[in-house]
Amino acid sequence: MLVVVSDTHSREESKLQGRTAEAVREAELVVHVGDFYREPVLDAFESASRALRGVYGNNDDAMIRERLPEVRTVEYAGVRFAVTHRHRSGDTGLVMLGRGRDADAVICGHTHRPRFDDSTGLPILNPGSHAEPRGNRPAHAELEPASGAGDESEQADSNPDAGLDGRLVTPAGEVFEEFRIRP
């Protein structure tokens, strides 16, 4: 499982609770999309996860910026992601970033609003914030290789090239949106 979190905004701890904490511990790979805030928070995520790939956000301190890139490419189960905290040109800039990195989707943060949008020409995933939702639903994203269960068309998707089934999940464990990303 790939877990995506963002916008922790903490000085000392990961603020992981409930399903979000479980998912981070269980995941093969965790992507943090920036705004840890202070370096001890990055350290806490590294301790809590098996493998962490992060980028820095606009509120991250100099120590985090020395350790993490602003943009990176991450691959999981045959799907390639362009990862950045934000892009000043909005969705258009995110799509252009993703295409420039030959990505299948873009992961971003910054807005604290969880969303999946595949209407932009390249899917965009924002996990929201598990710790500082700022009036939005607190959330993280969980992605797993597509299951292929169901009708014949979905069974055809059971091969490794089928993509990832994803969901936006609250720390309480409520799944409030499901989606698929195809390579």
Score class of each variant (00 low, 15 high):
L2M: 02
V5R: 04
D7F: 05
D7T: 03
D7W: 05
T8E: 11
H9K: 04
H9T: 01
S10D: 05
R11A: 14
E12Q: 06
E12W: 04
L16S: 10
Q17I: 12
Q17Y: 00
Q17V: 14
G18C: 11
R19M: 02
T20G: 03
A21R: 10
A21I: 09
E22P: 06
V24A: 05
R25D: 11
A27S: 12
L29R: 02
V30M: 00
V31M: 05
V31E: 05
F36P: 08
F36R: 01
E39C: 04
V41C: 03
L42T: 06
L42M: 06
L42A: 01
A44N: 00
F45L: 06
E46V: 01
S47K: 15
S47G: 08
S47V: 07
A48G: 03
R50H: 09
A51M: 10
A51D: 03
L52K: 00
G54Y: 07
Y56I: 02
G57Y: 09
G57E: 09
N58E: 13
D60I: 09
R65L: 08
E66I: 00
R67S: 03
R72D: 12
T73E: 13
V74D: 01
V74E: 01
E75C: 01
E75A: 04
Y76I: 08
Y76W: 15
A77M: 08
V79M: 01
F81E: 02
F81R: 03
R88K: 12
R88V: 13
D91A: 14
L94E: 07
L97F: 08
L97P: 03
G98D: 09
G98K: 07
R99Y: 04
R99M: 08
G100N: 13
G100R: 15
A105C: 05
A105K: 04
A105W: 01
V106A: 15
C108D: 14
G109F: 07
H112E: 05
R113Q: 14
P114C: 08
P114M: 05
P114Q: 10
P114W: 08
R115Y: 13
R115L: 14
D117E: 13
D118H: 11
D118E: 15
S119G: 15
T120A: 13
T120K: 13
P123Q: 14
I124G: 13
L125T: 09
L125R: 12
G128V: 00
S129C: 12
H130G: 13
A131E: 02
P133Q: 11
P133T: 15
R134A: 09
N136T: 12
R137M: 10
H140K: 04
A141W: 05
A141N: 12
A141K: 10
E142A: 11
E144D: 05
A146Y: 09
S147L: 09
S147R: 04
G148E: 02
A149I: 11
E152V: 14
E152Q: 13
S153P: 00
S153N: 09
E154F: 11
Q155I: 07
D157R: 10
D157E: 15
S158W: 00
N159K: 11
P160R: 08
D161P: 07
D161L: 15
A162C: 15
G163N: 03
D165F: 10
G166C: 05
R167M: 06
L168N: 12
A172Y: 01
A172W: 02
A172V: 11
G173A: 07
G173K: 11
G173E: 02
G173M: 05
E174S: 14
E177Q: 07
R180I: 08
R180V: 13
I181Y: 13
I181R: 15
R182G: 12
P183S: 00
